[in-house]
């Protein structure tokens, strides 16, 4: 077994991409909480990992689950009370880019995750498949379909 690297090195290397993924997935106002949940969840299980060969993919799996938890919570909140959707107030990114991320967040869950893992996290299709629960080919198809939808919204 390869020894696990110091967690701080892992966070230096992949933390920024995890942050961008989380931020794009759950939106700017919930990004800090979701990122924190992901990092703490990763720290909790880190010493018990038996393999050190694809830690990036593992870290994104943890973040992916936390993002899904978040989406479920938001969906439940919307069912029980009529909260308005997050207006992304105070977002530090360009407004034009925020429109792009809104379009990403409106994609079906699997497509959204596939697009973010491919472009924000820069994972391979072989990694994305198991992460979102499908084959490598289906992961590729989800990315293609997601991009097509975003393009359509943009040209509309």
């Amino acid at each position: 077994m390869t020894a696990l690297p110091p967690f701080s090195a892992l966070l230096d290397e992949h933390g920024p991409a995890v942050w961008r993924f989380v931020r794009a997935s759950v939106g700017p106002s919930d990004a800090a909480d979701c990122y924190q949940e992901a990092v703490l969840a990763a720290l909790r299980t880190y010493p018990s990992l038996t393999r050190a060969d694809n830690l990036k993919s593992w870290l994104f799996t943890v973040a992916h689950h936390k993002a899904i938890d978040h989406h479920r919570r938001v969906a439940r909140r919307r069912e029980t009370a009529e909260f308005p959707p997050d207006p992304a107030a105070g977002s530090p990114v360009e407004p034009a880019d925020e429109l792009l991320w809104d379009a990403v967040r409106r994609l079906p869950t699997k497509q959204q995750a596939a697009v973010l893992h491919r472009f924000v996290a820069d994972l391979t299709y072989a990694d994305i498949g198991p992460l979102i629960g499908c084959s490598e080919a289906a992961a590729r198809q989800n990315v293609r379909a997601g991009l097509a939808t975003i393009r359509k919204e943009w040209s509309a």
Binding site: P16, V120, D122
Partner: peptide, 13 residues
Amino acid sequence: HLTNRLRATGSVP
């Protein structure tokens, strides 16, 4: 252009 913009940059605040 689109995929380049999706490859966002930026670090954790």
